[in-house]
């Protein structure tokens, strides 16, 4: 079990005039992530998702508060925790001077994997993401999507029990995205706890047992995708505004939605089920994907 207790992260930054001020990136965050779940962090750009992942993976330290892995505290038990976790960063962070295979080897060595395991695991993983032929190519020579696939299997090499993925499928084509989802589900079936951040609502809907919606460093909602959607209302009506923008309203009953739609005089009226994106827009007042 993973617990955040009153976690706060602030950054010092200088503005153009050289005056220092503090920016609150994560504010008083309390969360509990259970063993074996797929947990999603959803939020617009700059919400604080990466900052949270970095604190969870000990790449940065909370300004205040504590993070526990069971009884282990990130402040005191870093080495023990690092054995449990796998990290897929938002930023592609291969060693640019090494080949695909060498980057994997490096990871295996850093995690103290015996040579035989390493070799076997690397060929298995590369085959899974269809990069076997590229094993001796420089990582610079891979396409963006290939790099991302490699990034994910690299994090899985040492069989972590908690896997963190910061925007794992950004910039991937739909087939590859689905393959990555399958891989994540497979890991989940094998008992791995998964914590992921995403911009893609459908990703959160397709994968996550529970979703935390974060805005401006604050947790604003936390539940299963279905419960979140039911909480705001299951029925939506959409229409075109005069200025061409799309507008929508959520209702708790089908009848209310129908009545509202019938009284609208605008163009292109559409009635549909509400979804996680509606929840997101309702709660944050912004669209994530646009």
């Amino acid at each position: 079990m993973l617990r955040l207790e009153n976690v706060r992260k602030t950054f010092l930054y200088k503005n153009a005039k050289g005056k220092e001020s503090t920016k609150v990136a994560v504010d008083n965050m309390n969360l509990r992530i259970d063993d074996g779940e797929i947990f999603g962090l959803l939020g617009p750009n700059g919400a604080g998702k990466t900052t949270i992942i970095k604190m969870l993976t000990m790449l940065s330290r909370p300004t205040k508060g504590n993070i526990y892995y069971g009884k282990l505290n990130t402040r005191n038990d870093a080495q023990a925790i690092k054995k449990l976790i796998g990290v897929v960063p938002q930023h592609i962070n291969f060693d640019q001077d090494l080949t695909v295979g060498e980057n994997m080897q490096l990871h295996g060595r850093l995690h103290h994997m015996p040579r035989k395991d390493r070799e076997q695991c690397i060929s298995e993983m590369l085959r899974y993401v269809e990069l076997s032929e590229r094993v001796n190519d420089s990582v610079r020579a891979l396409s963006g999507g290939m790099k991302r696939r490699l990034l994910i299997v690299r994090a899985l090499m040492h069989k972590p029990s908690i896997l963190f993925l910061d925007e794992p499928t950004v910039a991937l084509d739909p087939q590859v995205r689905r393959r990555i989802w399958d891989l994540i589900r497979k890991m989940h079936k094998a008992g791995v706890t998964i914590v992921l951040t995403t911009h893609y609502i459908e990703e959160a809907e397709a994968l996550c047992d529970r979703v935390a919606i974060i805005n401006k460093g604050k947790l604003i909602a936390l539940d299963t995708p279905k419960a979140l959607q039911e909480k705001i209302g299951s029925y939506a009506v959409e229409w075109d505004k005069e200025n061409g923008e799309r507008e929508f309203k959520i209702f708790h009953s089908k009848e209310q939605a129908k009545a509202f739609a019938n009284n609208l005089s605008q163009q292109n009226i559409l009635r549909r089920r509400s979804n996680l994106e509606d929840v997101f827009v309702e709660l944050t007042g912004r669209k994530v994907n646009s």
């Binding site: 790449l59 990290v87 962070n93 060693d95 001077d97 490096l106 995690h111």
Partner: peptide
Amino acid sequence: SPLHGERVYHKSIEEYFTAPIN
């Protein structure tokens, strides 16, 4: 000096910092 790039641009230093090594 490449360590500077590994830390600031490529961030490959994170690989070392998330691994259970001293």
